[in-house]
Amino acid sequence: MNAVPLTHIILLSTALFFTGMYGLLTRRNMITMLMSVELILNSVNINFVAFNKYLYPKQLEGVFFTVFIIAIAAAEAAVAIAIIINLYRTHQSIDVEDASELKY
């Protein structure tokens, strides 16, 4: 069986990282911005798992790190969505352009 080379996986994760960054900087919907951040975190997960499997198969540090990142991303999303709901109550919108009272 021909294994997928490591470089392909790293290319994928790097592309995912920059996709997430692009989305975060261009999207105007708060939920979509949150999704972009999740993309960034998932690219890190791919990195960890790939490095762990290809380069250090006798260790488990990378895999464990991934589990913690997933758990913390969930916690982060929970708090962020609670904040967005609260913001929706006062602003009647989840567009970042409408939440722009604090400037300069």
Binding site: G20, M30, A80, I83, I84, A99, E101
Partner: peptide, 25 residues
């Protein structure tokens, strides 16, 4: 303003920890 501040904080801190994590990986 408080909600707006909180949203800005959580998004930038999530983004910064994303950068940090990519570095760690």
């Amino acid at each position: 303003q408080s909600s707006e501040a909180a949203f800005k904080y959580i998004i930038s801190s999530a983004f910064s920890s994303g950068l940090l994590l990519f570095g760690i990986s």
